[in-house]
Design a protein around this nucleic acid. Structure first.
Length: 339
DNA sequence: CTTCATAA
DNA sequence: TTATGAAGG
């Protein structure tokens, strides 16, 4: 979820190939949830290994990561740590929504309504600690670095972009903008198309959102953008009833800050606004990490994907062959540059 | 989601 | 070559 400021920002469409040579910190939870909700059979059943364990997240993580490497894009996955206390309510609401979706999925199946079944199933995605561990093993085997954030993954990712250790953060959520990431990539997907719940396909291409561009267009500071988000509602507070992006923008433009909005007395500013501000402006992050992209451990990938999780050896090998060809080529280029 | 096979 | 649908685990 996160904050929906899509109406307030402009994104620049890019081709995946334009991102070649860049390092990108990817919001791991956001990405894995995407895979878990989308990679399903027509009745909503996720992919599973021979032991009945869900493998949709591994399928997505493997094919996408391999393709990024092949394109010369250097991914680092950033996992969430302990959520801020203020997120508790959001987490509980999501859990309840998943249970409800689970019931509706089963109901739709009984009624034989496959379209509705798939749509409901996609909202039941759950990421457990085993799935996270499996994902980390796969990334290790692929030679892709990962980081466990002390708290919010998006905060950690944004911190790394701010420091210049990576070029951009990647997530479907806009929160990285509020956390101060200078560059955010959305729709970091391979296929240029996405199937909607309706069954229709729409073109989607990666897009870049620049924090500086957002702020200069709106003529606000990041602090003011965060204040707008608090009025609209974030993962850490309920928004003010009746206030969306337009009204939040108008209010902050006219009055300047939440203190001033409160002083005017017309809008009931959320009580916890100062704490939510601190989450976005002074988040808990770490500088203890190393970004190293290693050689792909072919045998290791096979172990995780094929031995443990029933993926086809042929398919895995075919993808790895392309990645290895690419890394051999770059190794050759760097050797050439010495001569 | 990405890949694969098949059709236009 | 591009579009579409089924399969993948």
């Amino acid at each position: 979820m996160g904050v929906d400021i899509s109406d307030l920002v402009e994104a620049r469409k890019v081709a995946l190939a334009d991102l070649s040579g860049r390092s990108i910190a990817i919001d791991a939870f956001n990405t894995l949830y995407q895979f878990l909700s989308m990679i399903r059979q027509p009745d909503g059943t996720p992919l599973m290994d021979r032991d009945g364990r869900v493998t949709s997240h591994l399928s997505g993580l493997f094919y996408r990561s391999a393709a990024l490497l092949e394109l010369g894009i250097k991914p680092v996955y950033v996992f969430d740590g302990k959520p801020p206390e203020l997120k508790r309510k959001t987490i509980e609401e999501r859990r309840a929504a998943k249970e409800e979706a689970e019931r509706e999925w089963k109901k739709a199946l009984v009624e034989g309504d496959l379209k509705r079944a798939l749509s409901k199933a996609s909202r039941t995605a759950k990421l457990d600690s085993d799935m996270i561990e499996e994902s980390l093993s796969l990334l290790d085997a692929l030679g892709i670095p990962w980081i466990r954030a002390p708290s919010e993954g998006e905060a950690q990712m944004s911190h790394m972009v701010r420091k210049g250790d990576v070029w951009a953060g990647a997530s479907q959520d806009f929160d990285a903008i509020l956390f101060g990431a200078p560059n955010l990539v959305r729709n970091l997907t391979l296929a240029g198309k996405r199937r909607l719940p309706s069954g229709k396909t729409v073109d989607v291409s990666p897009e870049v959102i620049e924090l500086a561009d957002v702020l200069s267009r709106l003529e606000v500071s990041r602090e003011q953008l965060v204040d707008m988000a608090i009025l609209m509602g974030t993962d850490f507070n309920d928004g003010v009833r009746g206030i969306g992006p337009k009204k939040a923008y108008a209010l902050i433009k006219r009055l300047g800050s939440l203190e001033d909005v409160r002083a005017e007395g017309k809008v009931l500013v959320p009580d916890e606004f100062e704490e939510v501000r601190r989450i976005f402006l002074e988040p808990e992050v770490t500088d203890v990490y190393s970004l190293e992209w290693d050689m792909v451990d072919h045998e290791g990938v096979r172990k995780v994907m094929c031995d443990k999780h029933s993926f086809s050896v042929d398919r895995i090998d075919a993808v790895l062959a392309k990645v290895l060809a690419k890394s051999d080529a770059s190794a050759q280029r760097s050797l050439d540059s010495w001569s």
